[in-house]
C-alpha cells in the first residue's frame, strides 16, 4: 500500500480533485449529467444509467479485488442497518426522480450550465443534509434497527471474495448483454 502517499494531506486533496475531474468528465461524456437521460432511465425507456453503473461496478470490482489480493488496496464497505439503508434509499429515490439528478451528476450538470441543478439541486441537497444533521439525534433509534454493520457478501456467505466476484461479474455481463440485445 502507498501508505506514505495516503498520509500526505495536501497531495491527497489534489488527487481527490484530479479524480473528480476525471469522474465529471466521464459523467458528462456518458450523458448522465442530463435530466432527460436520468428520467428516461427511471421511466425504463433508456438504460444508459444502468449500463454505465453496471459496467463501472464490474470493472471496479475485478480491479479492486485484484489490488486487495496484492495487498495494494483496503476495502471500506459502508455499514448498514434495515432502519437506515431501506428508508434512506427510498427517500433518496423519491428525490432522485423529482430532481432528475443524484449528488454527483447534479454537480456535473451545473458544470454544463443546468441552473435547476444548481439552485434547486445543490441548494436542496445542502438543506436536506443540514436537516438530517439537525434531527440525527432523534433518528438514531430508527437508524440502528436491524443493524448488520460493515457486512459483505463473501463474509455473509462464508466464502472467499472470488467465489462471489466471478459469478456476480458473469451475471452482470450477461444482464448487460441482454439489455443490449433487447435494444434498451
Amino acid at each position: 500500500m502507498l501508505h506514505a502517499l495516503h498520509a500526505k494531506t495536501r497531495p491527497q486533496l489534489l488527487v481527490g480533485f484530479a479524480a473528480g475531474v476525471g469522474f465529471g468528465f466521464l459523467l458528462q461524456k456518458g450523458g448522465v449529467t442530463y435530466y432527460d437521460v436520468i428520467i428516461d432511465q427511471l421511466l425504463l425507456k433508456d438504460f444508459t444509467v444502468v449500463k454505465i453503473m453496471l459496467t463501472a461496478m464490474v470493472t471496479g470490482m475485478i480491479g479492486v479485488h485484484l489490488l486487495a489480493g496484492l495487498g495494494l488496496a483496503q476495502f471500506h464497505p459502508k455499514p448498514g442497518a434495515l432502519g437506515m439503508t431501506i428508508p434512506g434509499a427510498l427517500i433518496f429515490g423519491v428525490g432522485f426522480a423529482l430532481l432528475g439528478y443524484c449528488p454527483g451528476t447534479a454537480v456535473g450538470a451545473v458544470g454544463h450550465g443546468a441552473l435547476d441543478a444548481l439552485l434547486g439541486g445543490v441548494v436542496g441537497m445542502l438543506a436536506g443534509a443540514a436537516a438530517f444533521a439537525a434531527i440525527y439525534p432523534k433518528l438514531k433509534p430508527i437508524l440502528g434497527k436491524g443493524d448488520f454493520g460493515e457486512l459483505t457478501f463473501p463474509r455473509l456467505l462464508r466464502v472467499g471474495p472470488w467465489a462471489v466476484v466471478v459469478p456476480v461479474a458473469a451475471a452482470v455481463i450477461a444482464l448487460l448483454y441482454g439489455i443490449g440485445r433487447a435494444g434498451w
Binding site: 423519491v94 428525490g95 441548494v123 445542502l126 436536506g128
Partner: peptide, 8 residues
C-alpha cells in the same frame, strides 16, 4: 427533490 436526495 434535492432536499429528499440530500436527506435520504
Amino acid at each position: 427533490g434535492g432536499f429528499c436526495v440530500g436527506f435520504g
